[in-house]
């Protein structure tokens, strides 16, 4: 015979507690943390390269780069940021709060204005893991097609901001912008969207503006004009 014991406990409690601690630390020293999530090849590193280059003259910026095996992305970025650190996850398909905490354990966070976290390229797993970010930005490249948000509603719904990337290729690949926007809003009705190209610079002003107007608290985003 069995008896039933009520437990009612969040399975990811440990991660969520660590993430809350990180978030407190980040907001305590005034560093804004942006978690970039997307499928592999959507252009996280290119967006980040551009962003770091633009911010660096006026702000102190750093990046943590999650990758399964190589440090190629970290190498690309190290030219444009104050500090870049690679987190090689091995077989783990996402970054979690513990990995972030370990990576920044001896950092002087108070010297930073922005910390970018380039998550592992994956539209599924990173959705479940809070890493203490101020803003989670999901990228969708025009080459992936308009229906990605419907296939991966969870990650789009968990994001605070959507960036459509490689918009300069939209015509060449027959990307339907209206359809993509409609699909994003089906799974996350109020999600702000910008269309960008890190190659030509189109739309990057809106992205940069959003970053600079970020406050230190998640969910406290000023509306896009």
């Amino acid at each position: 015979m069995s008896r039933i014991e009520q437990i009612r406990q969040n399975v990811l409690k440990k991660n969520d507690l660590l993430a809350a601690e990180l978030r407190n630390r980040f907001s305590g020293v005034g560093v804004r943390v942006i978690n970039l999530v997307s499928s592999p090849g959507a252009g996280k590193t290119s967006l980040l390269e551009y962003t770091l280059r633009e911010l660096q003259p006026r702000f102190s910026v750093a990046a943590l780069v999650g990758d399964l095996a190589t440090d190629r992305d970290a190498q690309r970025l190290s030219r444009a940021a104050t500090k870049v650190q690679q987190i090689t996850t091995g077989t783990v398909c996402h970054l979690d709060a513990e990995m972030i905490g370990t990576a920044i354990a001896d950092w002087q966070l108070e010297l930073l204005d922005f910390l970018f976290i380039e998550n592992v390229g994956n539209l599924v797993c990173p959705a479940s893991y809070d890493v203490g970010e101020t803003m989670r930005a999901v990228l969708l490249s025009v080459t992936e097609g308009e229906d990605k948000p419907l296939k991966y509603p969870t990650i789009f719904n968990s994001a605070d901001f959507a960036v459509i990337t490689k918009i300069d290729l939209a015509e060449a690949v027959g990307f339907n912008r209206d359809e993509a926007r409609k699909n994003i809003h089906e799974v996350s009705p109020d999600l702000p969207i910008v269309e960008t190209s890190a190659r030509t610079g189109i739309g990057m002003d809106l992205w940069m503006d959003r970053l600079e107007r970020l406050s230190h608290t998640r969910g406290d985003l000023a509306p896009l004009i």
Binding site: R3, Q6, R8, V11, S188, D190
Partner: peptide, 21 residues
């Protein structure tokens, strides 16, 4: 109408355990 205000559906919870009596 669109419903951005999600109230539940993100949970991942150990609700209960059956243990020997």
């Amino acid at each position: 109408a669109p419903t951005p205000a999600v109230r539940s559906g993100r949970e991942l919870e150990l609700v209960a355990m059956e243990v020997p009596d």
